[in-house]
Computed example of a mutant assay.
Amino acid sequence: MVVVKMSDWTGDIGQEIRNSFGELMVGLPQPETILSVSQVAPDGFSSMMKGSRNILIISEGDKENFSIRKNIYAKPQTVVYVQAKDDAGIIKILQERKEEIRRTFLDADIAFTQNIFEGQVDENVKYKTLDNLGLSLLIPDKFKTVDDTGEFLWLRNHLTSGIAKSGSNNILVYSVPLGDETQVADSIVAVRNMIGKKYIPGSKPETMHMITEEAYTPYTFDAIIDGKKAYETRGKWEVKNDFMAGPFLNYTVIDKKNNRLVIVEGFTYAPSVNKRAFLFELEAIAKSLKIK
């Protein structure tokens, strides 16, 4: 929710906000923005509007100001304030701080979602693979076990609403030995293709299995998971020799203490519908990873 004058919203400031926070998320088959952005004028910023979880307040003033505050009007809530003397000053702050603002809002939503998951975890469910690998994850009880070998865990949530009801959200957890640390990022696709061939068959297992889509190069970013160096990879998966496909989100964590890579991956199969929300849920689960 962006609180800004309508004249600013329709001008250069609004354009900068849409450019900064309306960027498309990588790795999705349909174009979807990283954040959904809406505007309200300051005089229309009512008590109902003040209940929004993420708020960006733009104003003009004598002093330049950028600040982030929590739980001003509601809880949980993140409010970012941007103030400068004129349009150019406001735009300058937005350009310099856009990554920080975006990450602040997304991290707040991750924490909010994880808090919800904490109330949905069935403490009676034990996963052999997590126990063997010394891992813990916040896994909502709607996810059911597809495979749990002790070395490889596959969980699935069948989507039940609307047009997506034939689809599913999936979580994979496994580990591989740590080799040359400088080659980890370059090996992510090869590792997930190896796992797909071994554990994730298609309708004809002898000729079909999950692979990384060959026509689309995944995007890999630096990340931190459980305080450890990691890589976040977003791309598309497909089933070799079949027509199933969708987006995936892979976190490869360098666990030096145990000389291994711990991998938590989420992938979605939901034909014909937007998938940002499904991937976000999988991201929140993956980022709850703790290595014992």
Rank of each mutant, 00 (worst) to 15 (best):
M1Q: 14
D8H: 06
G11Q: 13
G11F: 09
G11D: 09
G14C: 11
N19K: 14
S20R: 09
F21V: 08
V26L: 15
P29H: 07
P31W: 14
L35S: 10
S36K: 15
G51I: 08
G51R: 15
S52K: 13
I55F: 13
I58T: 00
I58S: 00
E60I: 07
F66T: 01
S67I: 00
P76S: 03
P76H: 01
T78D: 10
V79Y: 08
V79A: 07
K85H: 12
I91A: 06
Q95G: 08
I101M: 09
R102G: 09
R103G: 12
F105E: 02
D109V: 04
A111V: 08
E118P: 11
D122I: 02
D122K: 05
D131I: 06
D131Y: 08
L137V: 06
L137R: 04
D141S: 10
K142I: 12
E151L: 00
W154M: 06
H158S: 09
L159E: 03
G162F: 10
G162K: 13
I163Q: 15
K165P: 08
V173L: 04
Y174D: 03
Y174A: 02
S175D: 12
L178V: 02
G179L: 03
G179E: 04
T182E: 09
Q183D: 02
S187G: 13
A190F: 15
A190N: 14
V191E: 12
R192M: 12
N193R: 10
M194L: 15
M194C: 12
G202C: 06
K204T: 03
M210D: 01
M210T: 11
I211M: 11
Y216R: 11
T217E: 10
P218E: 05
P218G: 02
P218Y: 02
I225F: 03
A230P: 05
T233C: 01
T233N: 05
V239S: 07
K240C: 00
F243H: 03
M244H: 15
F248T: 06
D255P: 01
K257V: 00
R260K: 11
L261M: 05
F267Q: 04
T268A: 09
P271L: 06
S272K: 05
R276V: 00
A277W: 10
F278M: 12
F280G: 01
E281C: 08
K292N: 11
